[in-house]
Design a protein around this nucleic acid. Sequence first.
DNA 1: TCTCCTCGAGATCT
DNA 2: CTCGAGGAGA
Length: 327
Amino acid sequence: MSFGITIIINEDGTIEIRNNKSIHRAKGKNLIELPCDYTVIDVETTGLDPSYDEIIEIGAIKVRNNEINSQFSSLVKPSRPIDEFIENLTGITNEMLKNAPSIKEVLPQFIDFINDDILLGHNIHFDINFLYDNLDFYLDYKLSNNFIDLMRLTRKVYPNLENHKLVTIAEFLNINIENHHRSLADCLTTHKCYQVLARQFNYDSKLLKSLWRTHISKSLDLRNITAETNNFNTDHPLYNKYCVFTGKLEKLTRKEAAQLVVNLGGKCQNNITKQTNFLIVGNFDYCSNIKGGKSSKLKKAEKLILQGQDLQILSENTFYDLVLNNE
DNA sequence: TCTCCTCGAGATCT
DNA sequence: CTCGAGGAGA
């Protein structure tokens, strides 16, 4: 197919290449929920790349109140013969595909079947990206169903597994798998795994979502770092001085640098105040929301210096010289 | 304290 | 893609 990449020529003559991810504009939302009604989907393809490879089988299982309600399955005839690797992997042969319907015939039936259900799949981005591109190309239809990724859920709920392949998850949950790499069979495995996981949460979406909240003290408070020694050199220029960092340091993390200061009897702050004596400036090239090359901390420091405050602005290396030379 | 940004590392699908 | 780390700004 012909929707691999987009080449954009900018005004200044530079060339920008965008991959096809940017064209999935109407794609549905990736939900962290535990619904009892949904449709499991799985596609088999000739390879991993939606821009070059083709769908050779589509399977779907409709679930209502956690029970299987109906199913959809069809082979799809590709434009080229499939290679030996895929034949061996899936068990789908060129012979089996010889009289299969075309993708154009299968897609409308598939859309009819899934309707506007929430879609469930394992690493479902893979399936949705294939379906999105094909539906867009052949039917000018935008697949916008919201979806749930079993892999994303299992990574969070069972973080200590050696990997999160569908086979590994099934084995861990004592679920028998047969016909792996055939669409309908993989749908069934995904459904069973999902049911075990969802039951552990009593189908309570809020309980599941609570695993994702990480609001707890994300930014470390530099003022809470304590010295690793009691013997301070009271003549050291950092002794009893207040330090603030801005930008990203090249050689140390901010916490490590703060520890240096504290071990010399200095103190760290998160923001510039009227106490501040040193502002250590790291690198902020990467930071797009800084205009004119100066962070707000730097501007504030310059203002206070003009007002006569005992405040020096140091580069990262000057800071290390200061730490080391005057021991 | 809260929201939004960037970057790097690490997986899974056929 | 997803997440966590680390930062800026209000």
